Amino acid sequence: MEKKELKIKSKIIHQYTLPFGVHGCLALSNDMCVILGVKSGELGKFILLNSGSVEVLDYEVPPMDKCGFNYRGALFKTDVGFGCVFDYELVEFDLRKRTFKTTRVKDSLPRDEADRKTGPYRAAVQVSKKEYLVTLQDNSHYFKTKYFCTLKKNMWGACYEPFVYTMKRTTHISAVDCHATYANGRLLFHRCELFGLDSHISEFCEILNGREDVIASVSKGIGRFTSDEQHLLIRTYSKPYVLEFYSLEGVKLFTIPLTPKRVIGNIEKRFLEFFDKYDSTIWMGRDSYVTQTRFETS
C-alpha cells in the first residue's frame, strides 16, 4: 500500500531585505540565522537575523586573492554560536560573549589535480573541538565542492590535512553541486551532476572506509543538509520547484511547494540556492532577500 505524503501547513514569519547580497545561510535556531553577506567593492560581513531584527556584526570578511570581496566561505554551527572557514582564516563567534575568535590558516590551500588552488565553499562541520570537515571548491566554478578535507587547529594556528575524499564525476564535461555533513559519526554528502542542460545524477551518499556508498537516488536539484542534522533538503531543478525533505537514511518524507504567499515570499524560487532549516523553521536567501517560514506536518 502506497504511503500517503504528509500534509504541510506553512506561514511566512519574517521577510528581510539586507544591505548585502546573500552568499551563505546557516540556521542557528527557529528564530536565528546567520548570513554571509558580500557587496561588490567592499569587504563582506556576517549578518545576524533574530526574530525580525537585522544586526551586521563587527567583523570584516577577509578578501580573496585579487578580489575586493569574498563570496567563498564554509559556514558551520558550534555549541556556542557559529563559525566560518575562509581561504586563510578560521573565525568563530560566541553568541553569549558576543566575541569573535580568529585562527590563522598557516599553510597553503590544497591544490587540485591540475595544481590549481582550491578554497572552502558552502559547508564545514566541527567534528571535534579542534577538528573541522571542510568542503573545498575546485578552481573551476563548474565543479563545486569536489574535495572533502580536514582542517585541524593547534597552538600555532590551523592547517589542512590531506584530502579525506575526492569526489568522482561520471562525465568528462559536467558541473556538480555538492553539499556534505558529518552527522552521528557519518560522513554524508549529496551531489547532483549536470551535463549540458540535463541532470545526469542526483545521489545521497556516504563515505565508508574511503569509498563512496550510494544510499539513495533522489530528485535532481540543489541539496543542503540542515544545521539541525535532521534532514537533507532538495530544491528541485524542474518546475514547479519544491523543497523535498529526506531523512538521513535517504527516505523521502514530505514536500513543501515554494509558494510566494506561504513559503518563499519575494525570492525567485527558480534561483533559490541558499537555504537551511532548524526544527520547524526554513530560512531561504537570494540576492539581498531572506525569508523565514514556519511549517508543521499533519
Results as ranks from 00 to 15, higher is better:
269 K>N: 09
236 T>E: 08
152 K>R: 15
101 K>I: 11
5 E>F: 14
109 L>C: 12
123 A>Q: 09
27 A>E: 04
211 R>G: 08
187 L>I: 13
86 F>P: 00
153 K>F: 01
209 N>P: 01
160 Y>V: 09
248 L>D: 02
285 G>A: 12
235 R>F: 02
156 W>C: 08
143 F>T: 14
244 E>L: 11
219 S>I: 03
188 L>Q: 02
85 V>F: 03
45 K>V: 03
243 L>R: 00
71 Y>H: 04
228 D>A: 07
15 Q>T: 14
263 V>L: 04
288 S>Q: 07
163 F>H: 08
103 T>W: 09
112 D>S: 12
112 D>C: 11
225 F>Q: 02
184 N>D: 13
85 V>E: 00
172 H>K: 05
272 L>D: 04
207 I>C: 10
165 Y>F: 15
160 Y>D: 00
172 H>F: 11
69 F>E: 06
203 E>R: 14
209 N>E: 15
298 S>E: 09
49 L>Q: 12
211 R>Y: 08
221 G>Q: 10
15 Q>V: 15
102 T>A: 11
35 I>S: 04
172 H>I: 11
292 Q>R: 04
24 G>N: 13
51 S>A: 13
280 S>Y: 04
247 S>T: 05
267 I>Y: 00
191 R>K: 14
54 V>L: 13
108 S>G: 14
272 L>F: 00
285 G>W: 09
99 T>P: 00
231 H>V: 01
117 K>Y: 11
281 T>I: 12
185 G>I: 15
50 N>T: 15
262 R>I: 02
230 Q>L: 05
284 M>P: 05
238 S>H: 07
263 V>C: 00
187 L>T: 11
117 K>E: 06
239 K>D: 08
44 G>K: 00
149 C>G: 03
114 A>H: 08
171 T>Y: 06
108 S>K: 11
244 E>T: 03
71 Y>N: 02
106 K>F: 04
8 I>D: 00
290 V>R: 00
224 R>H: 12
28 L>M: 07
256 I>Y: 02
164 V>A: 11
277 K>W: 01
70 N>Q: 06
220 K>M: 10
189 F>Q: 00
215 I>R: 04
150 T>N: 09
102 T>R: 03
209 N>M: 07
280 S>K: 12
99 T>K: 14
136 L>M: 15
2 E>W: 06
69 F>C: 08
45 K>A: 07
278 Y>T: 05
250 G>P: 00
40 S>A: 13
16 Y>M: 10
274 F>W: 14
6 L>P: 01
234 I>Y: 01
183 A>F: 10
37 G>F: 02
172 H>P: 06
134 V>P: 01
26 L>S: 01
69 F>N: 07
49 L>F: 15
121 Y>E: 07
7 K>C: 06
131 E>M: 11
202 S>E: 04
